[in-house]
Amino acid sequence: MSSYLKLVRIHNVVGAALGDFTGYVVASEWRFDIKSIILSILIVALVAAGGYAINDVYDIEIDKINKPDRPLPSGKIKLKNAVILSYATMIIGVFLSIFLGYIQFLIALITAVLLFYYAKSLKRQGLPGNLVVALTTAFSIFYGGVAFFQGSWLERVIIPTVYSFLLTLGREFVKGIEDYEGDKTYNVKTLATTLGIKNAWKISRIVLISMLIISPLPLLLGFNVFYIIILIPFFYFTLRAILSETTSKGGGYARGFLKVSAFLGMIAFIIGSLPIYILV
């Protein structure tokens, strides 16, 4: 069982579910409809799980170099079982989205298709693959807002969606730096393998610094002061990532820091969207 949880990268799936929850509470300002929020979280988790599993299916040879302890290259899970799991979870997730509405169904379907083609071919095409990962990750937050789909949900949810996109894009760039050796061996076109590690680092830092510069904007849309308070450790870990050494090893450290940043960012939006009378 633990191998299957590793295959779908359960911690990342939980992160995607938290992203959906973030989008929902930000859009709704904590006015819950239990059915829609549970359904949207389940949909996002299932589609994400399928995406991570199919990614490992297509990455099995590369992972023999970069991550030999993963379930597929280590032989803990059969390739056939991984394929069945990935298709089943994505199909079920997309099917369930029908019960939320046709727009929600369309977004879930597009996300599933993008994740499949990312794993199959886009991942090896450099920037297009990075953009797909950033977009589908940001969709987790956006989907929560779409599940609420009332009032001025779009105006409120678009900001955390953009932040998620930029943070994930920067993380994808540093991940390519971390995986430089294996990607170069199998001719995977990341920023690091095409432009070099130093240039990839420069671009990564520009993206992440841009995100930090615009981070106070939610205060203009009525987010409470706790948003800024929680943003302090977010700044700390993001800056640690930005200041990591300009090497493939530094890319590994930066990716770890940015995972923490992503979690703190969602918490900042969740708490920051609470009506102030609840907090006092």
Rank of each mutant, 00 (worst) to 15 (best):
L167K: 13
G170M: 04
Y143A: 01
A254Q: 07
E172Y: 04
F235H: 14
I230W: 15
E245T: 06
L191N: 02
L195I: 01
S164V: 02
I214S: 09
I229R: 14
L231E: 12
E245P: 03
S215E: 08
T168Q: 11
Y163N: 14
L219R: 14
V146D: 09
L169E: 12
G151N: 02
Y180F: 15
L195P: 03
L167Y: 07
G170T: 10
I158H: 04
I177V: 10
T190W: 00
A200I: 01
I228S: 10
K189H: 10
I230S: 04
E155T: 12
I158D: 02
A200E: 01
W153S: 01
L221N: 12
I158E: 01
I232L: 08
I232H: 08
Y143C: 00
P216I: 11
S164Q: 07
A138R: 01
G251Y: 11
M211H: 08
G170W: 11
L208Y: 14
L191Y: 13
V174W: 03
G252A: 09
G196S: 03
L212G: 12
D179F: 09
K184F: 05
S244W: 07
E245Y: 12
F142I: 06
S164E: 09
Q150F: 11
R205Q: 13
S248Q: 00
V146C: 05
A138K: 04
I197K: 01
T194K: 09
A200D: 01
F226C: 02
I206A: 11
Y227R: 03
D179I: 03
T247Y: 05
T161C: 05
E178L: 07
I230Q: 13
T238F: 03
W201T: 07
N199T: 03
E172D: 11
V162M: 06
V174N: 01
L217M: 11
T193G: 08
Y180L: 03
E155V: 15
L217E: 07
R171L: 06
P160R: 00
Q150D: 11
I209Y: 15
K249R: 15
G251C: 08
N199H: 07
E245A: 01
I229A: 15
E245H: 12
G145N: 07
R156A: 00
G222Q: 11
I203G: 00
K189R: 08
P218N: 10
S164N: 08
I141T: 09
L212C: 08
I206V: 14
A192R: 09
T193W: 02
S215T: 15
F142V: 08
Y253F: 13
Y236S: 04
E178Q: 12
V174F: 02
L219T: 15
V225M: 13
G250H: 05
L219C: 06
F235G: 10
D183I: 08
G252L: 04
I232D: 04
Y180M: 05
F234Y: 13
A241T: 06
T193R: 00
Y253L: 04
N187K: 13
S215L: 12
L217Q: 12
Y236C: 00
I230F: 09
P216L: 06
S215G: 06
I242A: 12
T246E: 09
V207T: 14
L220Y: 14
T137L: 02
V157R: 10
S215I: 14
L221A: 06
T238Q: 07
D179Y: 06
A192H: 12
G252D: 08
T136Y: 00
I209T: 15
Y163T: 12
F223Q: 06
T247G: 06
A138T: 02
F148R: 04
